[in-house]
Design a protein around this nucleic acid. Structure first.
Length: 596
RNA sequence: GGUCCAGUAGCUCAGCUGGAUAGAGCAAUAGCCUUCUAAGCUAUAGGUCCCAGGUUCGAGUCCUGGCUGGAUCACCA
């Protein structure tokens, strides 16, 4: 039922027979015909003019005649300039619909043990503050590409790497000790990550005060920033932590546990599941040996003060430090180690890091250093770099309080979904728990779709008003269409209408065949989204599909159709559209409600 | 300054490996609820695809140079 594959093969045959020339499959440009033009598939004939030595129109004409003659599926053709438009006989489209209708999740591929093994790392939060809008983009992208790769039949593991150690968490800990008054999530009523985050902010405020005081006392500003007592104290705390001193270590465990509880709630709200969570406290010592080995082989260089560097000037980059003069690891060292470990442990074919574009340089270096160290698999590291999320007022800055908190945002979306639904009277007669469930589904879908529909690479503007708008190109619009389809199906069942139809059905309406063609294209879109790691392709596809169905819905009555065969076909087509929407949305991590 | 990324309608964004007359939504204007859910549909209006060259049958898409905006170039992570 792969029309495009059949046609391509026949075109190659045709060129051979007509013009005695061999063409490669890549030269055969076959695309879906534009909506306004008659036909289903369009062959671009320009590349073949060299062989035919005839005008574009003539060449197209000859190829068209040949194909209609040889390929049963092709009913007719027309030529516009250098474009040969081929029309598939209706009965084949109908047969295709039937076949697709019979599949559970049409378009997706089941994983096999031999399939590619991919690890996707995303989220990667720090434990000193709650998740914000930037994390949301990261998490949604990571989750979605995990799902898309699975739909492409890959063996995928979604992993989180928690940055649970370092000076940042010591700052929160110190502030808690000094000004916390034994506050806990229970006693304060705050979510653990928010509580800890508040102390991080508190630290920063007090630290700023100290700097100001020092400057007033005549210190140079830089010096003041480096020598403020609070900072020195935090640094001392980090040293104590590295020595695993009991008091510091247990406080660290306690506060991190609060944060994890808080994160767990947010992940659950968002419907995110990880196969495994890594902690930097357990991995930050990895990689040192790799660096020392590299030093021994003279791949890396040691400076007079004892620090170890990679010279990347030949790669048009700078020198990069890998071990400090005191022999301790840096961020890069750790990443060298974890990558090595993961490839060794899981025999990975590919490793994808979902990390913001501010770290492009880091991953560029990571890859080059690993290659220099002689690891061939470095080629299979991929940094899925995404752009920042900005607000209409500019960048998000935690210090200026312009950060959009993840939990607040989700809560606000749910509240808006509820009031909007109420106003429209959509929730009348439903129980409280049903209302909860539906509004949650709508809110999350709105958020996910809003974020995922834009190309990951691009910096995006987060317009609060627009993100919460449920009209037009939005998640809820898609959900709404799905809900309407379900409503049709319920009624069809009530009336006892069947979805079985004969193969020889014909005379489909324009909108119907357009819909079938769009659905036909779904597997190709999934493949492409998998290859490009782009949920945006899925999002834009499902929006198109939804729009098409809506037009169809308004133009053509389904249940009132008198012709039983045609009616059955339309009901089945509606269901197929619904299933396709559902599958596509699931690739974005979004659910579709049965009613709304 | 070096490197990387982006620039498409008033705004937010699509536009797949170069293909036909550059598309949606929002905002604006005008219509459509005795009908399978109006979170919808239809119509109108809105464009120097940042600029200039080049490659070719054909460039929003590829190449070169510029302009604008962003990221990054720490013994931070």
């Amino acid at each position: 039922m792969d029309f495009d594959i059949i046609i391509k093969a026949q075109v190659i045959e045709a060129i051979k027979n007509l013009y005695s020339a061999d063409v490669h499959e890549k030269q055969v440009q076959l695309q879906l015909t534009r909506k306004e033009i008659e036909g289903d598939f369009t062959l671009v004939v320009f590349p073949f003019l060299r062989m035919s030595k005839k005008s574009p129109e003539q060449t197209a004409e000859e190829l068209g005649t040949y194909l209609v003659d040889k390929v049963a599926e092709i009913a007719s053709f027309n030529v516009i300039k250098g474009f040969l438009n081929l029309e598939i006989a209706e009965k084949y489209w109908i047969a295709f619909s039937k076949q697709a209708y019979g599949q559970k999740s049409f378009g997706t591929v089941e994983a096999t043990p031999e399939a590619e093994k991919v690890m996707v790392e995303f989220s990667s939060p720090n434990t000193n503050k709650p998740l914000h809008l930037g994390h949301i983009r990261n998490i949604l992208l990571g989750d979605s590409i995990t799902r898309i790769l699975k739909a492409n039949g890959k063996n995928v593991q979604a992993v989180n790497l928690v940055n649970d150690r370092g000076i940042h968490i010591c700052k929160s800990m110190l502030a808690w000790q000094k000004w916390g008054e034994h506050a806990t999530p229970d006693s304060s009523g705050l979510k653990g990550d928010h509580l800890v985050g508040d102390y991080y902010v508190k630290f920063d405020q007090e630290y700023k005060k100290e700097i100001k005081q020092l400057v007033e006392d005549g210190f140079d500003e830089k010096k003041a920033a480096k020598e403020a007592p609070l900072l020195l104290e935090a640094q001392a705390m980090l040293r104590s932590w590295e020595k695993k001193e009991e008091s510091v270590y247990s406080l660290w465990q306690k506060m991190n546990a609060w944060v994890y509880d808080g994160f767990a709630v947010t992940y659950k709200q968002m419907g995110i599941v990880f196969d495994k969570t890594y902690y930097e406290s357990e991995t930050f010592l990895l990689g040192k040996q790799l660096v020392l080995d590299g030093l021994e082989k003279n791949i890396l260089i040691k400076k007079e003060d004892g620090s170890v560097w990679a010279d990347l000037t030949k790669d048009k980059l700078d020198e990069k430090i890998l071990l400090r003069s005191d022999g301790t690891s840096v961020y890069m060292t750790q990443d060298l180690g974890t990558a090595h470990q993961r490839f060794a442990d899981y025999d990975l074919d590919r490793h994808i890091y979902v990390v913001g574009n501010e770290q492009n340089y880091h991953f560029q270096v990571l890859k080059i250093v690993l290659k220099k160290l002689g690891f061939d698999w470095a080629e299979h590291l991929f940094h899925l770099s995404y752009g920042m999320v900005e607000l209409p007022t500019g960048k998000m800055k935690s210090r200026e309080g312009t950060v959009v908190d993840a939990d607040d945002l989700i809560e606000e979306m749910i509240a808006t979904a509820k009031t909007t639904s109420m106003e429209l009277g959509k929730l009348d007669g439903l129980s409280d728990s049903e209302i909860e469930e539906i509004t949650h589904t709508i809110a999350l879908c709105a958020l996910k779709y809003f974020i995922l529909k834009v190309d990951p690479k691009k910096t995006m503007t987060f317009e609060p008003k627009e993100s919460i708008d449920f009209n037009g190109n939005t998640g809820p619009f898609i959900q709404y269409t799905y809900a309407r389809i379900q409503s049709i199906l319920r009624k069809a069942e009530e009336l006892g209408y069947s979805t079985d139809y004969a193969d020889d059905l014909s005379n489909l309406e324009e909108k119907e065949s357009q819909l079938v063609k769009t659905i036909y294209n779904f597997p190709a879109i999934i493949k492409e989204a998998g290859a490009n790691l782009s949920p945006a392709l899925i999002a834009n596809y499902v929006y198109d599909l939804t729009k098409e169905f809506n037009q169809f819905y308004h133009d053509i009555s389904i249940l009132k159709e008198e012709n039983e065969q045609l009616r059955s076909f339309r009901i089945a087509l509606a269901e197929l559209t619904g299933n396709t929407i559902k599958t596509a949305m699931s690739l974005l991590g979004a659910d579709v409600p049965v009613r709304m």
